[in-house]
Amino acid sequence: MSNPALPPVVDTETWQRELDALRVREKAATRELDAIAAQRRRLPMVEMPDYTLEGADGPVRLVDLFDGKPQLIVYNHMWFEGEEWQCGGCTGFTSQFTRLEFLNNYDARFVIVTQGPIDEALACKRRVGNKMDWYSTANSPFGADVGTPPGGGFGVNVFLRDGDTVYRTWHTNGRGTEQLSHSFALIDLLPYGRQEEWQDSPDGWPKSPTYSRWSGSKEIAAAYGEPGA
């Protein structure tokens, strides 16, 4: 049985012409992203209090999360109290980051902070096979102060350290976090894209309810988690 949802079939010359036209827009988008990054580098910043979080080895100051580096990216992971399986979106997003050593060359570190108690957070990390360093803000106002209060959502925050003083330089949430992801970048290259109802696709293209194709925490644990964790 043939697939009815197919792009038009054309000759190579026509295909190249259409690709070249798209490339003009792609290059314009790249230049706009460069300009946005330049503006981001010029943002002012806000001095942060001296927060104390919890790590695998006990209490840790916010400045110590930098591990001596001047720059820090924090992903604030959603947390639902009492739940064995935490947010599938956060679990899937952070499972992508298995090799972060390249950030050393850029004087930076990337960690997870969650509202979950540290013992539960670390158990969750092992269960789903996450490779990042996790910290808890369960006993600190840090999460609430950077836009992710208990029972709240997720977000990304970036910090800059000058000695023992920490500054908040950037924040995003929602789909703003997609720019850190390689999964959607790959999926968006596919002819059918994300196959979600909201996407602008030709008539007849496969459509699914939003989020329905995302891997859940159980699936990620089965693929990456530690046996018996």
Rank of each mutant, 00 (worst) to 15 (best):
L122I: 15
I220R: 07
D133K: 14
D64I: 13
Y192F: 09
R40W: 13
R42V: 10
P49I: 04
V46E: 13
Q195S: 02
F159Q: 01
K207I: 03
G82M: 11
A38N: 08
G152N: 10
D162L: 08
K207V: 05
N157H: 05
P149W: 04
E83Y: 10
S212Y: 06
V111F: 04
Q199N: 14
G55H: 08
L65M: 13
G176M: 02
E13G: 13
G89R: 15
G82Y: 11
G225K: 05
W79V: 00
P7C: 11
F110W: 15
R126H: 08
T177N: 11
G176H: 06
P70K: 04
N76A: 03
D34R: 10
W15E: 14
E226G: 13
W214H: 04
R213H: 00
Y211F: 13
D107V: 11
C87T: 10
E219Q: 14
T94Y: 10
R175G: 12
M48I: 06
N130T: 00
N76H: 02
D107C: 11
I112P: 00
T114P: 03
T94I: 15
M45H: 04
A29V: 07
W85C: 09
T91N: 02
G92D: 08
T172M: 04
D164A: 09
L103A: 01
A37T: 11
L186S: 08
F184D: 07
C124R: 12
T210I: 10
F154S: 15
P150N: 07
F97I: 03
E83Q: 10
T14N: 07
L6S: 12
G163R: 10
P209M: 07
F97N: 00
P150M: 03
K207G: 07
V24E: 12
G176A: 03
S136Y: 00
G225W: 05
P206F: 06
K125H: 04
S140A: 11
A56F: 08
F154D: 15
D50C: 01
P44R: 10
E196P: 03
C124Q: 14
E18G: 08
F159Y: 00
Q195W: 03
T52Y: 06
Q39H: 05
L62Y: 12
L33C: 12
A37C: 07
N104P: 02
P206H: 00
V74W: 02
I112S: 04
F80Q: 06
P117Q: 07
A5Q: 07
